[in-house]
Write a protein that binds this DNA or RNA. Structure first.
Lengths: 216, 216
DNA sequence: TTACTTACTGATTAATTAGTCAGTTTACAA
DNA sequence: TTGTAAACTGACTAATTAATCAGTAAGTAA
């Protein structure tokens, strides 16, 4: 005798808003993938954080890998938007550089976990998912400013690409290591607005001093 | 009727050297954990790379977590040794700083994948396994040099801890992003000795210019 | 009210993965 | 040669995990 299964009624998700649900899933997935990478991330952890079941994850994104790709796509789009608003025309190389430093730090501060997403992707999957999209337009702007400044003589005769690396280092490494330094000085919240402002000012002073031609 | 199992004879591992085997396992595990973190790493991948079976991994290290801890311990011991040979007495702050920059870059260049090991640990496990050990003795040296230089007036009046961060950024971020920049300029091997030497020289020039008091 | 579509889930399956263990091979001492 | 301990493995188990799918609740239009 086969007893038909009786399911209990569900209340669950009040919203029933496909767009909102997907955004919640992507937010949760971004956290999880940033922490654990593609392989290390757990669909169940993402589902829990997004307050849905794993079946819902598959309903919207089919596979874990698709969800991962969707997560990677978001910051790309966002950076593209940010840079669309950027206009450096008419600024001196020095002023333009200051502007770029501020933008780099600000956009990183908004999503500090994306650092790790980016590094995980490069180290685990050889950056395959990033290959085609040019996230690197900020780099292009910076490189142009550096080359102009060197040509005009207001910057030292730097090697442009190494200088680019070192400048971005100063801006971004702060966020890369902030987790590592939590256990050094647990009382300081290095992601608080005023700590980030201090970092920004110090970074500008540091970088400007490093690249500007000294009076001779 | 029970047919008793006959196992075929094995040649396999010629060496049969416990110490060597363990080192091979640790090397393989360091690569795998650096790429994928604790959760994402696969015991089978480690076993394959080390040319042993997963049973051997458990024979020597019991659990995945123990193996992970053993992997983390090695760099700690190694850095401790390196710093034991360091002597900055009698050097000017500027010369001492140059020395520290060279050491930081050199030791990072020897094991560029350890960057990720370190970051993975911080982001995945809140740096729990690192808490008790003071890997940070290089930081202590650097901080001391900076404070002396500021006090003597040969460095600008920097905030010591932010300056420390920015200096280490310039030295280390190069290795953090080198995977990300492979797909930008695939033809350049940024880990080759001469590329690293270029980075070192540029980093020294950059940092010194950034911290030194300008003639006034 | 009814018919239909979309959003979402519980329960289950198939595949992967850490961990176990009895047993085999090698080195070496007596 | 024999005995013994250490090094190592093949074959297995238990647990975890991604993926599936039939089915249910909610919205919507006729």
């Amino acid at each position: 005798m086969v007893r038909p299964k009786k399911r209990v009624a569900k209340s669950i998700r009040a919203n029933r808003d496909a767009e909102l649900t997907q955004r919640q899933i992507l937010d949760a997935a971004e956290q999880e993938f940033a922490r654990h990478g593609l392989k290390g991330a757990r669909m169940s952890a993402i589902a829990d954080r997004a307050q849905v079941t794993t079946a819902t994850l598959h309903y919207y994104f089919e596979t874990k890998e698709n969800l991962y790709k969707a997560v990677l796509q978001r910051p790309v789009d966002q950076i593209q938007t940010t840079l669309g608003q950027l206009n450096l025309d008419g600024l001196s190389p020095e002023a333009a550089l200051k502007q770029i430093i501020r933008i780099a730090i600000t956009s990183e501060a908004e999503n500090p976990q994306r650092q790790m997403l980016w590094f995980q992707e490069a180290s685990q999957n050889q950056g395959g998912y990033f290959k085609e999209c040019n996230v690197l337009s900020l780099h292009a702007h910076l490189l142009k400013v550096l080359e102009e400044g060197i040509a005009e003589g207001c910057f030292r005769p730097l090697k442009p690409f190494l200088a680019l690396t070192h400048i971005l280092s100063v801006c971004l490494f702060y966020f890369t290591v902030h987790e590592n330094w939590k256990h050094l000085t647990p009382e300081v919240d290095r992601l608080s607005p005023d700590q980030i402002e201090e970092h920004t000012e110090a970074a500008i002073a540091f970088i400007l001093a490093a690249v500007k031609r000294t009076a001779d």
